[in-house]
Design a protein around this nucleic acid. Sequence first.
DNA 1: TTGCTCCTCACGTCACGTGAGGTGGC
DNA 2: TTGCTCCTCACGTCACGTGAGGTGGC
Lengths: 155, 155
Amino acid sequence: VSPPASAPIPPERLLRIGEVAQLTGTTPRTIRYYEEIGLLPEAGDRGHGRHRAYDEADVERLREIVRLKELLGLTLEQLKQLLEAEEARAGLRREWQHAEATEDRRRILEESLGHIDAQLALVEDRRRELERLHGELRDRRHRVRTRLRTLKAGS
Amino acid sequence: VSPPASAPIPPERLLRIGEVAQLTGTTPRTIRYYEEIGLLPEAGDRGHGRHRAYDEADVERLREIVRLKELLGLTLEQLKQLLEAEEARAGLRREWQHAEATEDRRRILEESLGHIDAQLALVEDRRRELERLHGELRDRRHRVRTRLRTLKAGS
DNA sequence: TTGCTCCTCACGTCACGTGAGGTGGC
DNA sequence: TTGCTCCTCACGTCACGTGAGGTGGC
């Protein structure tokens, strides 16, 4: 059976490691290193010396990793644990989609909630600190501008 | 001549490296390393093996370094250049306080302004990215909460 | 004087950068 | 077939962590 003509499956263009690096603002070396430590899955089943291949989902996953690392300052070990926990919950959710006891499903959802709230707390901490830095810089700019004006008025 | 009794000079309590580390959320090793690469001035003139001594101004300087490093993700080399440029301008400003041509003083002030604006741009970039991450996390939390409610309603 | 913190090497680690020499795929 | 990008070691680097062995100051 072929797929319905009304919904043509997009060609799912495969990307090479250099393209993925550009799209995510990283380098091939970084991507290989993340694979090496198990932060990214092994890209395509390939023999020794064969090229890695990626799709859009891989790019999205890497973008998320880079963002959490840079914005929240997490180590790769923390990132790994975070992603593994998320993966585990997603897996359980798929299994129990329509079948299991609502009690178990509720527990999973509540775990997710706690997890999201923990990340939100980190984000809000950072935001507060950034806000303070921003305020101080604005003050300094104001003082310098005032001195510039008095300088021009006095000349 | 002794200082006036009406304005007693505070004892300017000297701090040891461990205290400074605690106050700034770093470690003694980090502080020694920053001194080693020239990011911090050598703490007190001391012979080989003698203890380093710090004051409140040193603590403030280190706090600023840590903050810029963590919030903006700058390397120590970038921090060093940033602080050196700032130091140079402050030095010139002190020298020319009342004496030099207003043209020169204006140039220094305008350099400061450009510098502050560059830092502000970095801060606002980060803030925008943090805002996006925050929004996405809030959306995910909302979806999980909705599913929790429907779960409870259906049971 | 006894503890504690400090000192200086110096090797280890995390997260990659940077070649060296070689093979894969449009 | 020619380039280009990719491949796998493997050593280098940045920003510290972690002892080892020893001395300083309240």
